[in-house]
Simulated scan of single mutants.
Amino acid sequence: MIDQTWKEMYKAAKEVQNSCKISNHMEAGGIAATVLSASNRIYVGVCVDTACTLGICAERNALFNMITNGEKEIKRVLTIMPNDKNGAQCGACREFMFQLMEKNYRNIEIMMDYEHGKVVTLGELTPNWWL
């Protein structure tokens, strides 16, 4: 369901999504993500892609932004791909969210398809965490 908070998260992600070449070995901004914290604050991040795998996904970038600002609980995650579609986070981002919220990761809402209002929980997306 697309409520006002999802709309604000989508808008915030679109505002920072701006694919650009930084150097011959680095690009950024093709994917943007927003995270809604437990305090209802929206944090943004963009992907940073490098030739040597030292880059970072937009989701973890947004989560680092949240943690930098003193928060540690996630309610929602929204990602916008370069084709303006949404989707599930990669395994590394899911694992980061698991470890961040070990006792309550299952309830994190993930926007899978903004256009159709499809939302799943991280628990539905990844039901069996290795720990």
Rank of each mutant, 00 (worst) to 15 (best):
N86L: 01
Q17H: 04
G87H: 09
M101D: 01
I74E: 01
T121I: 10
V16F: 02
C20K: 15
F96H: 06
A62V: 14
Q17G: 08
E15D: 13
N61Y: 07
I22M: 08
E8D: 11
R106A: 12
A32Q: 12
M9H: 01
K118I: 11
R76M: 00
A12R: 07
M112V: 02
I42S: 05
V77P: 04
C52I: 15
A51I: 08
G29K: 06
G117Q: 06
K14P: 02
L78G: 06
V16W: 01
A32I: 04
G55E: 04
M81A: 10
T53R: 07
P127I: 07
I42Y: 01
V48H: 13
A62L: 10
N40G: 04
C93Q: 07
A92F: 03
K75D: 06
A92H: 10
M81K: 15
V48D: 11
G123D: 02
E109L: 06
N18T: 02
Q89R: 03
K14D: 04
R60Q: 12
A58T: 14
R41T: 13
I80R: 00
V48S: 13
E102C: 01
A51L: 10
C47L: 12
N86H: 08
K72E: 10
A62K: 06
A32M: 09
D3Y: 08
V44E: 03
K11G: 02
Y114K: 15
P82F: 12
R76P: 12
T79Q: 04
V46C: 12
A38N: 10
L54F: 13
D84N: 13
E8G: 00
M81S: 07
G91N: 10
